[in-house]
Amino acid sequence: MLRPLHRIAPLAVLGLGTVAIAQEPINTTAATQPGVGRLVIREQFRWLESNEGFEPGAGETTEFQSWTSVFYGLRHDFALGAELPIRALDISPGDDDLDHGSPRFLAKWRFHRADLEALDTERASLIAGVRAETDDELSLTPGFASDSNDPILGAVYTTVRGRRGFNGALVGTFASDGDPDEIRYDAAGLYRMSPEVFAADTEAGWYLAVELNGLYESNGDNEVMFSPGLMYEARRWTGELSVQLPFLSEVDHRPEVDWTLVLGFRILL
């Protein structure tokens, strides 16, 4: 029998997304990028809780992560970016641990753009990059750190129709050192709650985001998080708040995450 969350989540994503909006969702990669010579800096803080530990029988685990990313527009259809994660891990019983994960270096090529109306658009991008080698670190997020240089390859699609938007992303990270490969599959629907109609003096908008964020690992682990959220988008910055709850969890090789709280902002320079 389906739990209520299993009924509501896909309907919510589809309901918001069937007619769509091109804002970048909180947990899903989008086919958006800064203009030529522009820089987008994004800072995201993530608080993850698990009732399990990394060793059998261990207690609960709390992890705070900071993800800093920078994307620079080289051409109207090509951008380069970098991402650095840092995390503080609190294992009970155990010591606190603060360390950084593997930096990611990414290129994004927007190979399809169809601007249909003043607001409406359809965009698709390819993403390629590398998760750079660093010390292997414990984390509730698979692939947070890797001791090899691992290729990243993916495709993302974004569409906007008036007040609604839809984003879909499929991104794989292929581990070179025998760790499991990761395939992230995400879908996000967005709805502009305010203003109902844009005007010449519109300075900002409020958006409701509903996402399904999936992660399949080649060791057989598979999880999907249901992620409702709220975004405030001004002309030069965006604030974002989201909660991630397990929607599907078939995880045997790492602690299951019970919930994640996400708080972030983006600045366009």
Partner: peptide, 17 residues
């Protein structure tokens, strides 16, 4: 006359350029 201006952030991209 411009098409595809889907968000306030997008408008700033044009503003600055």
């Amino acid at each position: 006359t411009v098409l595809g201006l889907s968000c306030p952030n997008c408008a700033t991209n044009i503003d600055l350029s």
